[in-house]
């Protein structure tokens, strides 16, 4: 029986789904996230409630984690696992409790590339309940894993020579092209502004009225709102919410939100340019490159300490490249 550990921001019907927050400490959703339904149908044993922060591990063969700020990829890296942040729109977000809807995708995590490919095959697909999912024919991603990367142009965002990446375990790549995104230095800021703005809006529904935590100091409506949210959210969350409100406000949005939206479009265009010259790009998992897949919607896989990015809906290519690295790393029995 395949076991899968699910992060505690993915809804499982009738089970506590808390997002590690006081605000949802007693919340039991009356519905499953679509991905949970799909896993059950594919005979996975689903275990919910994993916080998947820096200190946790997964006591299962597979895992699912949200990835709006590279969390899944970072978690995988910390645990010597492999994670895929899928193309935006390829996995249903129905039942994913996210603060940042345009940046997040549920990410399959596994011990091997094959496991991740198998898990992705189960969870990907159009979902009626999530109208941002794209309808298309998704292939069986396990089929062509060992095809290798012959003839694939690999771009590299690393400054140092390729033999120094991955501790020398990088397979020799015939064609590598150095890739630069002129606006990369702004990626992290662009990401933060959009994330905080969406967080302000997506977390506004936590008001102590319909579900979740309600403050005991709630004699008036104003107290109900303000005390519930002051007590139910942690400091960082509150800071992000308030910052998000500032970024969207009438007097300030021209400096923050509106600029960030244009910055996002610019980064998308620059990445498109990069993909005109290369088929996949290997990048470090630093603050800037980690958010590029979230900002652009492109898929990215974290394997062996680096990140590989490909154009939208090119997961097949990503798996082949990741598999090549996996084999070169000495895990050819995976």
């Amino acid at each position: 029986m395949k076991t899968i550990s699910i992060k505690d921001d993915i809804c499982i019907k009738g089970e506590l789904t808390t997002c590690g927050s006081k605000m949802l400490a007693n919340f039991k959703p009356p519905y499953n996230a679509t991905v949970v339904d799909k896993l059950a149908a594919a005979c996975f044993n689903v275990i919910g409630g994993n916080t998947m922060d820096e200190n946790s591990s997964i006591d299962a063969d597979f895992a699912l984690c949200s990835d709006h700020a590279g969390l899944a990829r970072r978690f995988a890296m910390a645990n010597s696992l492999i994670a895929l942040k899928p193309t935006y729109g390829s996995v249903s977000r129905y039942g994913l409790i996210t603060p940042a809807p345009s940046l997040d995708q549920i990410s399959p995590i596994g011990k091997t590339v094959r496991d991740v490919a198998e898990l992705y095959s189960v969870i990907c697909g159009m979902d009626e309940r999530d109208s941002t999912t794209v309808e298309r024919d998704y292939p069986n991603f396990c089929e062509n894993l060992d095809k290798g990367i012959e003839g694939i142009i690999v771009g590299t965002a690393f400054c140092r020579p390729q033999q120094n990446i991955l501790g020398g375990k990088m397979p020799p790549l015939q064609k590598t092209i150095p890739i630069e995104l002129p606006s990369i230095e702004y990626a992290s800021t662009v990401f933060q502004i959009i994330a905080y703005a969406e967080t302000f809006s997506n977390l506004a529904r936590y008001d102590g009225i319909k579900f979740g935590y309600r403050s005991e100091n709630a004699a008036t409506l104003a107290e109900l709102y303000e005390n519930t949210r002051a007590e139910g959210f942690g400091y960082d969350t509150k800071k992000q919410i308030i910052t998000g409100a500032i970024a969207l406000s009438r007097d300030n949005r021209h400096l923050y939100y509106d600029r960030a939206i244009r910055g996002r479009a610019k980064l998308c265009a620059e990445l498109d340019n990069a993909f005109a010259q290369s088929d996949v790009i290997i990048t470090p998992l630093d603050d800037s490159w980690t958010v590029i897949p979230n900002l652009t919607g492109c898929p990215a896989i974290a394997v062996g300490g680096i990140q590989i990015i490909a154009p939208k809906f090119s997961e097949e290519l990503l798996f082949r490249a990741a598999r090549t690295i996996e084999i070169a790393g000495g895990d050819s029995n995976a």
Binding site: Y186, T189, Q192, K239, T243, Y256, R262
Partner: peptide, 22 residues
């Protein structure tokens, strides 16, 4: 604390160019 932290964040946001060619 909120004041200080948020102002610091906004300051870091201030490095964003206009992107007015977009």
């Amino acid at each position: 604390k909120f004041q200080q932290d948020i102002e610091q964040t906004l300051e870091s946001f201030g490095n964003l160019p206009e992107f007015d060619d977009v």
